[in-house]
């Protein structure tokens, strides 16, 4: 067996594990099979069903969440790699004040049809707008390139993101002026 410098627990093959992470700013501890992905944990274990599964293979973006500040496909994050991470899902993001302009713009521009891609789109848009206050067209296209939508042709989604950016900027400016 490993010598004393090793943490033997880490070196045992595991079936289930207990993980601690932060979900929408709340600390969580779950005991799950080690075969679970973050998406399985969210949907089956914690019943956070806003994050969707469109492919399970990292190809569609429907499962997009924010992990440690990066847009992440929840379907490709294995439970073991989740320990200590900071996760934001659509449930948490849509309740945040700074997401309101995005939600409002999506509603006002009908940036949803069947809606299955929408939570992922909103998360990716939120991430984009928290990185760039006034994204260029190219930055918008790039930021949403990993989120497939079969219904909208993206037109209204892109319009909504632009409108939200304008809105966020006026809110910020007003905030500064006040």
């Amino acid at each position: 067996m490993p010598n004393k410098n090793f943490n033997s627990e880490n070196l045992e093959l595991k079936d289930t594990l207990e993980i601690n992470f932060t979900l929408n700013s709340v600390k969580r501890s779950v005991k799950v099979p080690c075969t679970y992905t973050l998406l399985d944990i969210l949907r089956y274990e914690l019943k956070f069903t806003g994050t969707k599964e469109g492919c399970g293979m990292g190809e569609c973006g429907a499962c997009t969440v924010i992990m440690d500040g990066g847009v992440t496909p929840a379907c490709l994050v294995l439970a073991t790699t989740l320990e200590g991470r900071d996760i934001w899902t659509i449930e948490g993001i849509s309740a945040k004040d700074d997401a309101k302009p995005i939600i409002d713009a999506f509603v006002a521009r009908t940036a949803t049809q069947c809606g299955f891609c929408t939570p992922g789109m909103v998360v990716a848009s939120y991430h984009l707008l928290s990185k760039y206050v006034s994204p260029t067209d190219d930055q918008i296209l790039e930021a949403l390139s990993g989120n497939l939508c079969r219904c909208t042709g993206y037109v209204k989604i892109i319009e909504a993101v632009k409108a939200a950016a304008r809105d966020l900027n006026t809110v910020k400016k007003e905030g500064r002026d006040a």
């Binding site: 899902t89 449930e91 849509s94 509603v107 009908t110």
Partner: peptide
């Protein structure tokens, strides 16, 4: 605006 927009956009 769509009557079902909100629930689809906030994931509910």
């Amino acid at each position: 605006t769509r009557v079902d927009a909100h629930e689809k956009i906030d994931g509910s």
